[in-house]
Simulated scan of single mutants.
Amino acid sequence: MLFQRVLSGMLVLGLMAGCVMQPSAPTSATLQGDAAHPAATQGWVETRLYFGLGLVDKPESGVSEQAWRAFLDQEVTSRFPDGLSVIDVYGQWQGKQQSSPERLRSKQLVIDYPDTSENRAKVEAIRAAWKQRTGDQSVLRVTQPADVSF
């Protein structure tokens, strides 16, 4: 009899815990019907680009904040006007002929967009424009699938 009460109590507690552990329903997006900012996405990606602005130890040299913003306006915002993020980051880079890494002032650009050949070409054009403008060897690109909702 005692065993049945303990077992019944454990069953009730287990069921109650299951109710508590259920995740709440997702909230709906506020910009429904806006093609540039959809309520839910399929086939979107997030790309992060890393731009070196110059040596940390020589802030007077390299790319200025004003020059970065001009690049952002001319090359990036013109291609992705619906939104993006820029984050100040510290970076390190070691070129093929270098014995130690350079410490760099850097910017991380984050863009979420539908994964189309047109958008991928826009990202590559941004990278090419930076390399042409600065003479840098590369712009690191990291692209991953993204589950986006606005």
Rank of each mutant, 00 (worst) to 15 (best):
R127V: 13
L84E: 09
E46A: 15
Q22S: 14
A70T: 12
G91H: 01
G83F: 08
E124A: 08
L31I: 05
R105H: 00
R79A: 14
F3I: 11
V45D: 10
V139P: 06
D88R: 08
P38A: 07
P59A: 02
G14C: 13
Q32C: 10
L140C: 01
G9A: 15
F3P: 00
W44R: 03
A40D: 06
G135P: 08
K122T: 07
F3V: 11
I126C: 07
V76P: 04
R69C: 00
K58M: 06
V20N: 07
V12K: 12
D147V: 09
S138M: 09
Y90W: 01
I111D: 05
S149Y: 01
D88T: 10
A129N: 09
A146V: 09
A40I: 03
L104K: 00
T47C: 13
P101I: 04
L55F: 06
V142K: 00
V6E: 09
G43C: 10
D82R: 04
R133T: 06
V6K: 14
D57L: 02
C19Q: 15
Q4T: 11
K58N: 10
S100G: 01
V63I: 15
S64W: 05
S85T: 15
G43R: 06
Q137S: 09
E118H: 13
I126P: 08
A70P: 00
V142S: 08
C19I: 14
E118Q: 15
A29E: 05
Q4H: 11
V45A: 15
A17C: 10
D136E: 10
R133I: 01
A39Y: 02
A146E: 03
S149L: 01
D136K: 02
L49T: 06
F71Q: 03
P145L: 05
W93L: 07
E65W: 02
R141L: 08
Q66D: 14
V110A: 14
V123I: 15
L31R: 15
A67C: 03
Q22D: 06
V63T: 15
Q94S: 04
Q42S: 15
S106Q: 02
A29V: 04
A121C: 04
W44E: 10
A125H: 04
Y90M: 01
Q92I: 03
N119S: 10
D34I: 15
S8E: 08
Q94F: 02
T143W: 03
S28G: 04
E102S: 11
A121G: 09
I126A: 08
A128S: 13
L13R: 07
L7Q: 12
V76I: 14
L7C: 10
R69K: 05
R105D: 00
P114G: 07
L72F: 03
F3N: 13
Q4F: 11
Q4C: 06
E65D: 14
R69W: 00
W130G: 04
S99D: 12
R48H: 13
V12A: 15
E46N: 13
A128F: 03
H37F: 15
V139M: 06
Q94K: 14
